[in-house]
Amino acid sequence: MTAFLTRTRGRKRLHWTDWMAYAYLTLGVLLMFGPVLWLVLSSFKTERELQNYPPRLLPYVQKMETVPGYDKPLPIYKVTAGPLAGQEVAQIRRIGLISQVVKPSDPKTVLKVPFKDRKAVEHVALATSNYSKLFERFNFFRFFYNSTFITVMATLITLLVNSMAAFALSKYQFRGRGLVMALIIGTLMIPPTVVLVPLFLIVRDFGMIDSLWGVIIPGAATPTGVFLLRQYMLTIPDEILDAARMDKASEWKIYWRIILPLSAPAIAVLAILSIMWRWNDFLWPLIALQKQENFTLQLALNSFRGEFTTDWASLLAMTVLTLVPIVVVFAFLQKYIATGIASTGGK
């Protein structure tokens, strides 16, 4: 068994550098996954458990039991000292240092136990109270809808607009093509972070400040997208287009019936990139969206984070719900995302 585990391709035994490599990678797994896993685990802890220090690794839930004569389920404690030591009791209320308890088997007799002599009976379980409270307290669905709407609409517009431009730049010879290409390379040099003030004015003049469209439209045309699609479309042979023209197909029909389907792999890469950019976008929405009802998930998350006191219970649940869609997408499309990002330089 050990021989099987320590076998490497090509070599007989593990060299000490192999051990170092695996140690580094294991540490990497802990450091990369650990924090996120810790957040997810924490989000399933009760609000009281979250205030416990030191924190425990797994989420625990106190055992609750319905006792005849009481409307609500009562929390169960184990008595650690005194005449009742070792027995499980249900607490009715706590007055100062004394807990009033009953034995579940004998709910009529109210007993008194010093508060320090009882210990909560707990078991590992996922508490969903943070999630349910999140839906009650905050307009979570509104933020989720805003984020989804922006992501979907922006991605569709990005794909349409950029593929049209890429089609024109890859399949037509016309005067000024070089100039257009130079202009698009030029936009690569101007990240939105350096034109925030005038961009705000222009979007305001279009009446799109504090509207989801004000987030969608300004970034819809991306030089990365045009280049990615154009490079791919250049590999499609022109003969196909000529054959279609012989059959009296219009140029638009050639574009969406022939070029678009044939460029599907490149379009998929751009779609994934666009979804990621839009879902995670922060600075421009922070400027363009002002009313809370228009906030995206990212803005809502940011606004609930206070400097000193933070409602961690809701915040943890909301963070998990924000990262779930991306993790799901990632799980299925990991390979495409990685190659897509590597080939375009990120943005």
Binding site: P35, F282, I326
Partner: peptide
């Protein structure tokens, strides 16, 4: 793939 805000909150926690 995570969003910047999520990264910030994970570590803040």
């Amino acid at each position: 793939l995570l969003s910047p805000v999520v990264v910030a909150l994970v570590w803040k926690w």
